[in-house]
Design a protein around this nucleic acid. Structure first.
Lengths: 242, 242
DNA sequence: GGCTCATGTAAAAGTCGTTCACATGAGCTG
DNA sequence: CAGCTCATGTGAACGACTTTTACATGAGCC
């Protein structure tokens, strides 16, 4: 993983050979440890075994390193969301909820990326590439919302797909920020963030007219999904009304 | 407002007289300008017209100043949420939605407080008083959710009130963080954050079985509310299904 | 072999956070 | 009012960080 991390100057020679990548990896580790605020350009240089001025050959300043990391983060984020969506298989609602869980999983498993992307305070439009990467990630959610919108039953509110996408994004982001990340995770909850978000999304989908017994879209254009597992519980994390 | 802000040393004398408060005000201004990350202890001292060491007579370190501001923020936040809730008048659902809007309004109108409270990266449990203030603010939402839960119609999911409170908190926080604050506000939206959140909460409430035509709880224990204004539009920000 | 240029270094300037010894003066005590 | 005390402010100093500048190194190419 770590490409010649601990090499001494002597065995490495004057030139590092892969400093840019080494700095990114070092920064990733430092951010995971101490947050983007506590992360230090000098520390990253030290960890890569070079002088404090060396990083400036590869990044204009500390912010550019941070924004490079955020950009990579958005790219990985997009991949994970895309995989979770799986083009709506086995059915749209199931896949949609899986996207929500993937959001939380990313926040939990990639704290450094998540921190750089959403908590580092760097402006979204600092970098055109960064903004584009961010939009590509969001577009996964948006595309999923389009599919969902097309299936929304009549007799219920039908907000634009874009709005539905923003709703889901805000729910996932709210739960992740408040309960699923670093210091914030210390707020003690009577349930897991995943359960919280799942229930939230289910209630929301129910508000849009979707059935929430985990066998949705009974009479839609979708092929009737074969339940991959036995139905879990009685219809939701909180139980049915009596 | 600003108590002797620009006094020269000569006319002030050796002792400031109100340094602690002056520092808090200065920090508040600086955080509003440059964010909690960019805010500097030395800058606050300069703005108050004292040496860089003076603040240490009133705050153990920079973090303690920050956490003082966050604490004040939570207190004001609690007040505003309480006022918005207005003990559930004229009816529970209306008041509940007003709380959501108050959340956004606070984020928008008090960026410095919001930043210190939620975006400064200081641990929630850094300070017992801070944590308590934070909990008091959340308890307003929680109390509102209890009332709402008691009115939830049968035949619909009935999550615990605590969970509903967390859902609302996460929605409001998600929208505020993503779209209603500083740099994040630059994400261009096809609608205002307020509209977005209002629609989100309405759909969620509908998922809980509440009617969403803005005249809720028709046959509940609540006194039939007199609509203070004419009904606005056709039942929601996105229109009814055709 | 010699050139060139990307990549690294050392040193320096400027800023911060923080501490320490010392200065000041507001308010109490006699 | 004299004098004491102690909270509050000052200045200097330390180490760390960011960023710039002039200089060093050596990999790749002719």
């Amino acid at each position: 993983m770590s490409w010649r991390k601990e090499q001494s100057r002597a065995e490495r020679g004057y030139h590092h050979g892969n400093l840019k990548e080494a700095l990114l990896q070092a920064a990733l580790g430092l951010i995971a440890e101490k947050g983007a605020a506590g992360f230090t350009f000098a520390d990253a240089a030290r960890m890569a075994g070079v002088s404090a001025a060396a990083p400036y050959r590869h990044f204009r300043d500390r912010d550019e390193l941070l924004s490079s990391i955020a950009q990579r983060g958005f790219e990985q984020f997009e991949q994970r969301l895309t995989a979770a969506w799986d083009d709506g298989r086995p059915d749209t609602v199931t896949a949609f909820e899986r996207v929500g869980r993937a959001y939380l999983a990313f926040a939990r498993e990639e704290p450094a990326f998540y921190n750089a992307m959403f908590e580092s305070g760097l402006p979204v439009d600092a970098n055109a590439a960064l903004q584009a990467a961010s939009e590509r990630a969001f577009n996964v959610i948006r595309a999923a919302a389009e599919r969902l919108a097309a299936l929304a039953p009549p007799g219920a509110p039908r907000p634009p797909a874009m709005m539905m996408a923003l709703h889901i994004w805000s729910m996932a982001h709210g739960v992740a920020s408040l309960f699923s990340r670093g210091d914030a995770a210390r707020r003690k909850l009577p349930m897991s963030p995943d359960e919280l978000l799942e229930a939230e999304v289910l209630i929301y989908l129910r508000g849009l007219g979707f059935p929430t017994d985990r066998r949705p879209q009974a009479k839609s254009a979708e092929p009737p999904p074969v339940p991959p597992e036995a139905p879990s519980g009685s219809g939701g994390p909180w139980g049915k009304p009596k």
